[in-house]
């Protein structure tokens, strides 16, 4: 129920007055309620718990994290005094 990995929104539609979507996890597609992320667009990634999308993953923030790690990797030879 909680081991959520991010999935990509591949379809957005309305069903009985509720905003729904399809989220793709490497080919496994599941139906997800999008009511809590009304501004989500096709192609964006979301964290889903128990059939509900809870956040839109922020591409810029993700890149910042990865960039920081790459910089760390470049510093690998550096030896700092204790």
């Amino acid at each position: 129920m909680c081991l959520a990995i991010p999935g990509k929104v591949v379809r957005i539609y309305q069903e009985a007055g509720v905003s729904m979507g399809e989220v793709d996890y490497e080919g496994a597609v599941s139906r997800v309620c999008l009511e809590y992320v009304p501004e989500i667009r096709l192609g964006q990634y979301t964290v889903v718990h128990a059939g509900f999308a809870l956040s839109i993953l922020d591409e810029e923030e993700a890149q910042k994290t990865l960039e920081l790690w790459r910089e760390l990797l470049d510093k690998v030879e550096e030896i700092r005094p204790r």
Binding site: M1, C2, A4, H49, A50, G51, F52, L54
Partner: peptide, 10 residues
């Protein structure tokens, strides 16, 4: 059941 993550859906 669940934590704050499942409560919104319920």
């Amino acid at each position: 059941i669940g934590f704050e993550t499942t409560a919104p859906g319920n």
